[in-house]
């Protein structure tokens, strides 16, 4: 059921919103340090799959295993705690808290996890350097460009030293050049820190930064690894 050595695996997920099925028997797995692209047309259930895998929503049926633990059996508080400690997130837009400075945004996951402010902001700055946005540390998100903002978001996702980063159309609001740069920095940083990335995208050139790809169609994930 669960592919050997996988960090996060889902089996036969089903999820219905109202009467429309979003997931209809989807399976998925990702290994430590692996970048997996989840592709598919819009409305195919990509984002729903990502939200289920990240424990943001619970599937109607099916199992999700993370690091030997059943995510599907956890309480909301336990899943929240897991998201704080082990997961990182990058979304398409609107994810930075507009009133916090960039460095405070990056430090936010650490602080939510109980790290002291000074330490959290120091760690945040090193990640911002990695993503080449250290110069905008004390600016507010409204004052930086889209590409910079997205890199700040990537830095934030990495700052909490997660095991898995969930990236939902991380380049969706960017032009090709900025998008490529964000993807390059994200995948390089993730690989060097041995962080797995679940990358939801409908763009092939973004998916090309992955190690492997999974297609979701009509709520079913065609994971070649699973088929094998």
């Amino acid at each position: 059921m669960t592919p050997a050595g996988s960090l996060l695996a889902a089996h036969d997920l089903r999820k219905t919103y109202g009467s429309t099925p979003a997931l209809d028997g989807a399976s998925f797995s990702v290994h430590p340090g692996e970048v997996v692209a989840v592709m598919g047309p819009s409305g195919s259930g990509k984002s729903t799959l990502l939200h289920c895998l990240a424990g943001i929503i619970t599937p109607d049926s099916g199992t999700i295993t993370y690091d030997g633990r059943k995510l599907s059996a956890m309480s909301d508080a336990e899943r929240s705690a897991l998201r704080r400690s082990d997961f990182g997130f990058v979304f398409q837009f609107g994810q930075l808290v507009p009133e916090l400075t960039c460095v405070e945004n990056v430090a936010l996951p650490l602080r939510l996890n109980g790290t002291r402010r000074k330490d959290a902001e120091r760690t945040a700055r090193t990640w911002m350097e990695r993503l080449e946005v250290e110069d905008i540390a004390s600016k507010r998100p409204g004052e930086v460009s889209g590409g910079q903002g997205q890199r700040v978001a990537v830095a934030r996702a990495l700052a909490g030293s997660p095991k898995v980063i969930f990236a939902d159309e991380p380049t969706g609001a960017l032009d090709s050049l900025n998008g490529e740069r964000v993807m390059q920095l994200l995948t390089e940083a993730a690989r060097s820190a041995n962080v797995a990335v679940v990358l939801v995208t409908h763009e092939a050139r973004v998916a090309a930064y992955s190690d492997r790809d999974v297609t979701v169609r009509d709520g079913r994930a065609r994971d070649l690894e699973h088929a094998a």
Binding site: H51, A54, I56, R79, S80, A81, L82, R83, R84, S85, F87, F89, F91, G94, Q95, V97, P98, L108, P109, L112, F166
Partner: peptide
């Protein structure tokens, strides 16, 4: 609304 959802995704506690 969206920002709040993102913060929830992060695992932000309601109490926070």
């Amino acid at each position: 609304k969206r920002l709040l959802s993102v913060l929830v995704a992060f695992g932000t506690r309601r109490t926070t």
